[in-house]
Structures are given as C-alpha cells and as structure tokens.
Amino acid sequence: MATRAAHKRLTREYAALSRSPPEYITAHPSESNILEWHYILTGPPGTPYENGQYWGTLVFPPDYPFAPPAIRMHTPSGRFRCSERLCLSISDFHPKSFNPAWEVSTILLGVLSFMTSEEMTTGSVSASEAERKLFASRTRWWNSTGGGSTKRTLSGQPAETQAQQGGNKTGFGAIKAGDGGQRFKEQWPEVDEENWKWMESERINPQTGKSLGLHQQTTNQSGAAAANKSNTAVAGGGRETVNAVEQSWISKNKWYIVAAALFAYVLAARALGDQK
C-alpha cells in the first residue's frame, strides 16, 4: 500500500501528465492500485519503432519517490524482453542512483530514449531493423488480441473461415498464458476499440495477425496460375494431336504414296522419250 506521501505525489503527477503529456507517451495509474501504472509509448518517426504501440507497466514502491519503480514492457518490440524487469539507471535495479526529483514523465522519457538507442542491458535484446519494423507493424494486433489468444473474430468473418488461414493459433510472440487481450482492454478500453477498428479495416485475422486479403489474393493468384498452366497444356495437347493424326495417315498410306510416286516418274520418263 502506498504511503500518504507516495499517493499524493503520484496523484499530482497524473494530473500533470493529463494536462500536458510528453510527445509519444501516454500513462495512467491502475484504478485499483495507484502504485501500478500503465503506459503506451508510440514509436517515434524515423526509427524502426515508428507508429508502434508499446504497452508496459511501472510498479512503484510504497515509499516512492525515494525509490525507483520496476519497469517492464509487455508488447514485443525487438528491443526488450516481454514483461521482464529492465535494468536502467531509473529503475529498481539501481535504487541508489535514483533522484527523487525525477517524475513519471522523466522515467518514461528515459525508457523511450533508451529504447531508440542500441545500448544493451539486462532485459534488452538485439534485433535487426527489419525485425523491429515487423514487430512495430503488429503491435496493435498483439496488444488487443493477447498475441492471437483471443476468441473474438472480425464482423462478417466466420470463425471457421478464419481457421482456414492456418498458422500458429497462439500468434506471433504471444504470452504463454494468453489472456486474449483482456488485460490491455481493461486498462486501455478506448485504444483497444481503435485497434479492433483498425483490424476490421485492414482485414487482419485476430488469431494469426495476418491479412485475410493477402490470403485471398494468394489463392486467386494460385488459381490463375493453375488456369494458365491448364490452358497451355490444352494448347500443347492440340498441337500434339494434329501431329499425331498426320503421322498416322502417312503411316497407313505409305505404299499408295510410293506407288503414286513411281507412276508419276514413269509418265515423266515417257514424256521425255517422246520429245526426243
């Protein structure tokens, strides 16, 4: 339970954040526990995380601000291990280096700054720029579906049709326990609703994170390729049939052809003899 000083400090900081949130940062305390904060970092432009939606938590000690919070990021990013405590100078790994004057906004700006750097520490991972961009493109899907563990489907898209898309039913980078996105929805209901609207408009399969339209396009292309191959085979078969008929007629009438040739030769020889 938070001390009176911690409760007062965090209440004041939440009011300040609500009035003037830092760029790319949104945060609020849990309704049931003011020591548990949830944040979303939006990937800044010009970085591999651009437009990514990175959800995490800050868990403050009861005697905050005289001790730092535990910092975690739950959304796969290619930069941090999911839901593991991060070893930063502003986290509970280094309580002696924490400055009580630092506020929640200062802490989250530090997390964002560290995220966009390449410095390694406990809880961080290395990945290529392409991998991080892929993670960024799937963050909204991941947050609102629990990494594909949701049972919810898109409107107008029957579950049995979606099942035909194949793929891992637990989704890309899913939490092993898989809550179907319920925890995210509880903390960010409006953001969750926007995420589902985005999945609807982009036709993203909630169970796999893959585009349903891409699957249909691939199927159509495969069908077209098969039809072209079939047409080519038919055309080729037609030519082969004509050749076979011609060869069969010659084979059956070869002696008539030889006799006709000899007869024509004799007539030509007689005509030449008469002229002489």
Results as ranks from 00 to 15, higher is better:
A233D: 10
S97D: 13
S251M: 04
F184T: 01
A159P: 06
E200L: 08
F66N: 11
M120W: 02
T122P: 07
L41Y: 05
E119C: 12
R239Y: 14
A163R: 09
P21C: 00
R183A: 12
G178L: 07
T150C: 09
P29L: 11
L267H: 14
E36T: 08
S211F: 02
S201F: 04
T42M: 07
W141Q: 12
T218N: 12
Q187Y: 01
W255S: 14
Q165A: 12
Q207T: 14
E119Y: 09
V245W: 07
P21Y: 02
E193A: 13
W249T: 05
K210E: 11
A226T: 10
L108T: 01
E131T: 11
T161M: 11
S83R: 15
M199H: 01
E118Y: 05
K276E: 00
Y49I: 00
A259Q: 02
W255R: 13
T150S: 14
L41M: 13
P69K: 05
K229Y: 04
H74S: 14
I71N: 02
R81F: 09
S30M: 05
A226I: 09
P48R: 04
T26M: 01
G110L: 07
G43V: 03
K133W: 02
E160G: 00
K252A: 10
R79N: 06
V242F: 08
N99T: 07
G148W: 03
R270Y: 01
T219Y: 10
T116S: 12
E186T: 08
A15V: 03
A224T: 14
E246Y: 13
E118F: 08
G213D: 04
S117D: 03
F263P: 01
T57R: 10
I204R: 02
S222M: 12
Y39I: 02
I71T: 04
P29S: 10
P22Y: 05
S18E: 00
R72M: 15
G166V: 15
T161K: 09
P158H: 06
Q182M: 05
K96F: 08
V258S: 10
T116I: 14
I204H: 02
